[in-house]
């Protein structure tokens, strides 16, 4: 990570016109290159040991799932440990093709919904958040309160009215009921998240830009958006995960098995009244976790960009 910190933009792009004479920004010290003392080294070792132990505990259940997916079905619940006597890939091959379509079909469906949702949330929520965080307008407090209210009502009671709404528009069994609400910033969680982040960005930057003659669209696009990359990355990752895992919405709105998303398809392995193919279920659960995990691995780089790397103030 030290390498990333070296490519810092200079502050004049942002804080040029500032009246107060502030401390010159410094690059965060690249600790990796510093020579550690012995005490420091053993402290670091301790830290790693604790982290690895804690991490191991954290993901033990997941490891068990991975191992189980490589076991024959009848052994899965007989062995709680992580030891594998043989490698059984059949759960993957049979699970992939057990349903009407190959499992990839459902992953593509999920991907469509996920991509639509991410774009929707990024655009609409950041716009609303900019207004709430930076602009003065009539009924601001009231609207902000209403926005928070919309998160507070348990979703079970709005399902039926919402379903009636979407079914009357003729959107049942399409992806629209899952995507359009995101395009319209109905996930107030993200609006609020971005509001909090924008409020953490020094206002002097806006003011400086405004003195330079920039209007709101320009300030929003050129200044605020680049500075809130961590918030945008957070939104992207969360939207991806939550939409990818969303069961209830997909269950209610997608009736045709061709349209099933991953969580709904996974339930098809579960038969409460008869035998469940646990091996296939675990195998496909892991397959469906892969994209999420990859997105997280890739996306987390953007979490650590942001103000820290621009070093303003």
């Amino acid at each position: 990570m030290t390498t990333k910190l070296e490519t810092l933009p200079t502050p004049e792009t942002a804080g040029a016109g500032k009246p107060t004479n502030r401390r010159k920004p410094k690059v965060r010290e690249s600790r990796g290159t510093l020579a550690f003392s012995k005490a420091q080294r053993s402290k670091a070792l301790m830290k790693h040991a604790i982290l690895i132990l804690a991490g191991g505990l954290m993901i033990y259940p997941l490891l068990w799932m991975v191992v189980s997916s490589l076991r024959p079905n009848e052994l899965i619940f007989r062995e709680p440990g992580l030891w594998l006597n043989s490698l059984e890939m059949s759960n993957y091959t049979s699970g992939w093709s057990a349903l009407t379509h190959p499992f990839g079909h459902y992953m593509i469906n999920s991907a469509i919904v996920v991509i639509g949702s991410i774009l929707g949330n990024l655009i609409s929520c950041s716009m609303a958040a900019y207004a709430f965080a930076r602009l003065q307008f009539t009924a601001k407090k009231l609207l902000f309160g209403i926005m928070l209210l919309t998160i507070m009502l348990p979703f079970h009671v709005v399902i039926v009215p919402q379903y009636i709404l979407f079914s009357q528009i003729g959107w049942v069994n399409t992806f629209w009921p899952l995507i359009v609400p995101k395009l319209l910033a109905t996930e107030a969680f993200f609006v609020f998240l971005m509001v909090q982040f924008i409020r953490g960005i020094p206002r002097e930057l806006d003011e400086a830009a405004r003195i330079d003659g920039a209007g709101h669209p320009r300030i929003f696009l050129r200044l605020i958006l680049p500075l809130m990359v961590p918030a945008l990355a957070t939104t992207t990752i969360f939207t991806f995960i939550w939409t990818w895992n969303d069961f209830f919405g997909a269950l209610i709105y997608l009736t045709d098995p061709d349209m099933f998303t991953v969580p709904v398809a996974l339930r098809a392995f579960v038969d409460s009244q008869s035998a469940t193919s646990w091996g296939s279920l675990f195998a496909m659960s892991i397959v469906s976790l892969l994209p999420v995990f990859l997105v997280f691995l890739f996306g987390q780089r953007f979490l650590i960009k942001g103000i820290a790397t621009t070093g303003i103030k």
Binding site: Y163, I164, A268
Partner: peptide, 22 residues
Amino acid sequence: KPEFGDWSGYWDKLATQVAAND
């Protein structure tokens, strides 16, 4: 046109569909 799902989701969905005349 087939529509199917697991037991618990089935009833939530059916109730919603009936409520919406669907």
